[in-house]
Nucleic acid binder design. Structure first.
Length: 406
DNA sequence: TAGACTGGCGCC
DNA sequence: AAACGGCGCCAGTCTA
């Protein structure tokens, strides 16, 4: 059986091919979007200078901190806002805590969101296309877990949905509309469903979690029922588990007291005892061996795990929990890419990988055929103790695809 | 003026 | 004392 490093070797030519093919970008669309965002930003700037009483650099966290925490006399201590090295935090999660204390806060959140989109995506991306309007990233496999990374440009952090900040419009998802299929082609998006939690079930053989997946139920809904909470809360805990999150982390994310968060975590591990044992086991082995491994034996050394400094040691433990699952998920999709690539042709090309998702550009006449091939390869490339499921959708651009049952 | 650092934030 | 794993990119700020 192939090990993780051999897998990477075989993947290289496929990645180079994906880079070379690239993805078509609708420049006109982005230019129009840029104009709309500009108008909005100018409007927000004027509103904000008015509300605060003077001009300042809205893009400077330190200047904003001075305005909020000194001039406007908002007390960061009372509001539970953490201190950074140079000043108190003005991060979105901090600003949300003081939302009700001044009219400017919501406007700042919207300003930040729009400035981010414009500076990171809308303005730079069109400058990077070739003569055929296609964008070419560079993939690397030099991460600590075995995931790919993407740079120049990074195609793995293109906005996917709207945001929480109460703006009147979901600007974020607009960006993906600019990622289009060539004429006569469509994009197929294929993403693994809950792959890391399925891997958790596989590694831990947890009876409860395994049963949920085998019966084809929604894991977050099942967890919600188990804990007596709503689905959103259950989802946070399920994800938190994969990252080794503490009661503090859960409480911050859910905005509930740490004591309540601890109760939820206790209840969680009482429901998923197999998972609890697995996690204890991985941490134990990491302490003993100084490393953890993925399904295909990618090894990550974790010197932090035996640190005398608790903070460092805890970090090592979170890494020990997360790396096997994140790394195994990366291996599964890489295996699928390897399996799939020879089955494709010039009318059906794999063009992007976003960790648990593959995007293909496929000629209209070959969509049905490709859908079957893709689903089959991705779902059957590995046999776990729980089913591996892939969702497929098709569309003219990356934002507007329609789910297809195959 | 270039590079490093900081705070912040987009994605999975 | 910090508190959620893995990335890359941005503007502002500091420093050589």
């Amino acid at each position: 059986m192939l090990n993780s490093y051999q897998l990477d070797e075989k993947l290289m030519p496929i990645l180079r091919q994906m880079e070379k093919t690239g993805v078509k970008l609708d420049i006109n669309f982005l230019e129009k979007l840029a104009q709309k965002i500009d108008l909005k930003l100018t409007e927000l700037e004027e509103t904000l200078y008015g509300l605060v009483g003077h001009k300042f650099n809205l893009n400077s966290p330190s200047q904003l901190a001075k305005v909020l925490y000194e001039e406007l006399k908002i007390s960061p201590e009372k509001c539970g806002i953490k201190k950074k090295k140079t000043h108190h935090s003005t991060s979105a999660s901090s600003l949300i805590k003081i939302r009700s204390l001044h009219k400017s806060i919501d406007q700042i959140l919207i300003y930040r969101e729009l400035a981010k989109l414009k500076n990171t995506y809308v303005d730079p991306l069109p400058k990077l296309v070739d003569q055929t309007q296609r964008l070419h990233t560079t993939y690397a496999i030099d991460t600590t877990t075995g995931r790919l990374s993407s740079k120049n440009p990074n195609l793995q952090n293109i906005p996917a949905s709207g945001k929480i900040a109460k703006s009147d419009f979901s600007w974020g998802s607009e960006i993906r509309k600019a990622f289009v299929a060539a004429k006569g082609y469509k994009l197929i998006v294929a993403d693994y469903s809950q792959i890391e939690l399925r891997i958790a079930a596989h590694f831990s053989t947890d009876i409860n979690m395994t049963k949920t997946f085998q019966e084809g139920h929604d894991i977050h809904a099942a967890t919600a029922k188990e804990l007596g909470v709503d689905r959103r809360t259950a989802k946070v805990i399920n994800f938190g588990i994969l990252y080794g999150m503490s009661a503090y982390g859960v409480s911050e994310t859910l905005k509930i007291p740490p004591e309540e968060a601890q109760v939820l975590i206790d209840r969680y591990f009482n429901s998923y005892t197999g998972l609890a044992h697995y996690i204890q086991n991985v941490i134990g082995e990491a302490h003993e061996n100084g490393f953890v491994e993925t399904l295909l034996n990618r090894r990550r050394y974790i010197p932090e795990i035996n640190s005398p400094i608790e903070r460092i040691r805890r970090f090592g433990e979170r890494v020990a929990i997360n790396t096997p699952m994140q790394g195994t998920a990366a291996e599964i999709i890489k295996l699928a890419m390897l399996e799939l690539h020879p089955k494709l042709n010039k009318n059906a090309k794999m063009i992007m990988q976003i960790h648990d998702e593959l995007v293909f550009e496929v000629k209209d006449s070959e969509i049905d055929d490709s859908l079957k091939k893709i689903k089959n390869a991705m779902e059957n490339v590995i046999k776990l103790k729980v089913p591996v499921l892939v969702n497929l959708s098709v569309g003219d651009n990356w934002a507007e695809t329609k789910e297809i049952k195959v």
